[in-house]
């Protein structure tokens, strides 16, 4: 039970990172982006490529950091991967979503995002193979937090959780302390007025994709580090990430962060009563519950 709680928080941090980007896109560009979770896969594989590259170029970088299964090379690769994934998100918008958006067809964007998801997911499968990979073959030792009841935590999980929280704090500071953050929030509230106030909407749209892509890349790497890397990361995380955005209320960044943890916890706690085969259905149950009782999200404020 407590192990489920611990696991729930750890995986919840990953959902939260994905959901923050998705909720921003859903609110600002007004469409449910079914290809958002594929950005997690893009991030995971981009980091894999650069980890190998950095390790080959500078072998000392391949050394593990402390008790983590993560190497210095991977730490650097995460940053590169965030940039690459952000660029991918901007590129996909430019090639597909922007053109449909300019014709003013919101639901066609939802539809196109299914197509984009299929293409991205399967191209990754074709390039990297359909099998699973790991950043490191070494199996890291788990730390025993308690013997009775048995609670195990791997150092990678602790690192992932702290790194995810750090990213969220940075985002919070940007939103609440910088004029760039004010412009983002201004566009979220009233795009027309923001434009009158001199905010360049196109730049904000790009910023939204960059933030969404960067956070998704980090989430993808963290997922790969604590589970495994497969081209199906996007498919498997799509519903949990959607559930987190709906729990948090579409457009609420803080809601999405909280929603991620909540969905992580709920999905893991559900395994106490449900056989594990049913876990892919749990996010959908959460969505149904939220839509039945609080369609605007559990953390919805007074905002209309």
């Amino acid at each position: 039970m407590i192990q489920h709680l611990v696991d729930g928080v750890l995986v919840g941090a990953i959902y939260a990172l994905g959901a923050i980007g998705l909720t921003m896109v859903m609110h600002m560009l007004r469409f449910a982006n079914f290809s958002h979770a594929e950005l997690l896969s893009v991030g995971a594989y981009a980091a894999l490529v650069f980890e190998k590259l950095f390790s080959a170029l500078a072998p000392p970088l391949a050394a593990k950091i402390g008790p983590l299964s993560m190497s210095l090379a991977l730490a650097l690769a995460v940053l590169v991967s965030m940039a690459i994934t952000a660029a991918t998100a901007v590129l996909i918008d430019k090639l597909v979503f922007k053109r449909i958006r300019e014709r003013g067809e919101e639901l066609s964007m939802v539809f196109a995002s299914f197509g984009v998801a299929l293409i991205v997911r399967n191209v990754i499968g074709l390039v990297f193979g359909l099998g699973t990979t790991l950043y490191s073959r070494e199996i890291p030792f788990a730390m025993v937090l308690s013997l009775d009841p048995l609670i195990l935590v791997r150092p990678d999980q602790i690192f992932t959780l702290s790194a995810a929280l750090l990213l969220m704090v940075i985002l919070h500071l940007v939103l609440s302390r910088t004029t760039f953050g004010y412009s983002l929030r201004a566009v979220a509230e009233n795009p027309a007025l923001a434009q009158i106030a001199g905010v360049n909407l196109r730049r904000i749209v790009i910023a939204v994709w960059v933030i969404g892509g960067g956070l998704a890349a980090a989430a993808g790497v963290f997922y790969g580090l604590t589970n495994q890397i497969t081209p199906m990361i996007g498919r498997d995380l799509l519903m949990p990430v959607f559930a987190a955005t709906i729990v948090g209320g579409i457009g609420s960044i803080y809601g999405a962060a909280a929603g991620g943890f909540l969905v992580g916890l709920a999905a893991n706690l559900a395994l106490v009563i449900l056989p594990s085969g049913y876990s892919p259905s749990v996010p959908f149950l959460i969505i149904l519950l939220v839509l039945s009782f609080r369609p605007s999200g559990i953390f919805a404020s007074e905002r209309a």
């Binding site: 004029t179 004010y182 001199g198």
Partner: peptide
């Protein structure tokens, strides 16, 4: 500068954030 008739401030931002947004350049 243009001041619209309604919805002419950012309600979810504080007064100071509204001003600083306008002052960002």
């Amino acid at each position: 500068a243009y001041v619209p008739q309604t919805d002419n401030i950012f309600r979810s931002l504080t007064i100071r954030e509204n001003l600083d947004l306008a002052l960002r350049r």
